[in-house]
Design a protein around this nucleic acid. Sequence first.
RNA 1: GCCGAGGUGGCAGAAUGGUUAAUGCGACGGACUGCAGAUCCGUUUCUCGGGGGUUCGAAUCCCUCCCUCGGCUCCA
Length: 499
Amino acid sequence: MREVMIYSTLDAKLVPLRPRVPPRISMFVCGITPYKPSHIGHGRTMVFFDTAARFLDYLGYRVFYLQNVTDIEDKILREATEEGVEWNVISERNFAGYLREMQALGVDSVNFYARCTDYIPEIIAQIETLIAKGHAYESEGDVYYSVASFPAYGKLSGQRLEALEPGAHVEVNPKKRAPEDFALWKRERLGPRWPSPWGEGRPGWHIEDTAITVNVLGPSYDLHGGALELKFPHHEAEIAQAEAATGKSPLAAIWMHAGLLNMRGEKMSKSLGNVLSLGDALTMVRPEVLRFFFLSGHYRSPLDYAGPSSFEEANRAYETLEGSYHRLEDALAQRFPGTWTGPDGVARTFPGWKEWVAAVDATLPADPSKPGGDKVLESMESSMANDFSVREATASLYTWAGEVNVILGNNPEKVPLEPLVRALRPFRFAQKVLGFFPAKGGGASEQALGKLVEIALEARTRAKARKDFAEADRIRQELLAAGVLVEDTGGRARWRLKP
RNA sequence: GCCGAGGUGGCAGAAUGGUUAAUGCGACGGACUGCAGAUCCGUUUCUCGGGGGUUCGAAUCCCUCCCUCGGCUCCA
């Protein structure tokens, strides 16, 4: 299996991914606090980690991807008060929206979403352990983590406590022994609360993640992901909690941080009024183009949204690849049933597209011991294995798309089958790993639509044959008005839905 | 102030010691087309934030300065 190099925040350099129990990879990514509809910043982070998980899975690792959901938190309570509804109405509604948006974006690698409120007993148990070991203390019904008790605090972010400015953003809390201490448990008398050894209350922000990961993944796991803004203090707190509670270090072998998405060079924030929700973004572009946009830079670099023009440019760029893919798909679809001799030398006959793709997928990933078999695929794989360099892999795909366009030329039906099938491999990589070119519905309505368009196109072809271009153009115009874009290529017309 | 991430052509964005600095978008010219679209071919643009250093050789390593963004205790 190909070795993957990943930038480790802890080591500040690229390190090889060495699963603790190969081929299994346990992966945790800090999820959302569903107090508001999700925004495109969430989308960027989640699409990236989905792509990373897909790639590892593609290589043959068995990935277990866990994500938490902070379904109880101050901001959720605030929203609930404003709306006059129960807190869980807010968190469940927004989480459901998040799941829908993730599905639209093709984020399908998460195996388990763990809600904070489903882990209250585990949270309480972990806090008790921390108190017993002298890392936490109770103060008027609250429980705080004593940062001074954990010398390694700061190892992830490089922060030194003495350099921090207490009270810079949040008022100094007199119930804490030290300003850098953070809440594990918060007393609650009126709102949602759970019984605990310290009275009724609810969990602090950081503790749910470690209570969940230690219980679901164990005291140590392979990958921890999250957005850059969570590095300090949140991830630092996770390390302090888990490593102090379990005595095992490191909590996660590799810590990954995704760069933030900026709005015209500025941070997205409610006060600046520059938040773009995922829901709104999805009305502006097709979901696969939004995904493409999120993947248009390296994951560690900041990504800038400069307004609708960013989406328009992404759309133009995406259409180049998509066009090539569709031409290839179309050329192949004309050959069913067809026979293909795979790399194993065995000839197989395939009745349709699905079987065909399955046979191609069986040849993935590229076999590194047989170099030269497929340079494009191999370079895409090695780009991805180098800290998930999606953009570099995409560049290879562009080069390939150009070559495929040349191979197909104006008479794709004359191209031998063998190169056509081989040409599909890099595109399949893009589908499976990058999430491009999602499969079409294929449902009854899509089939009916296809049939109808074909009938219209036959009429147009007859009109063209008798040089009745006015009629041919009229049909094309009417189809366009209905959202169907017609393009003449060589012998026959192809069509697609207007994006 | 401290910690961190960035600063590459008109724009987006790669390459972290070695041929002409990927790739895409855009622009211009040509081919193809009944027209359109798509596609193809060609052209166009950067010496890599400023300065200094190491090296046979640096966008890539070191030093220094400037700029942008983020974090500094519950923001993906």
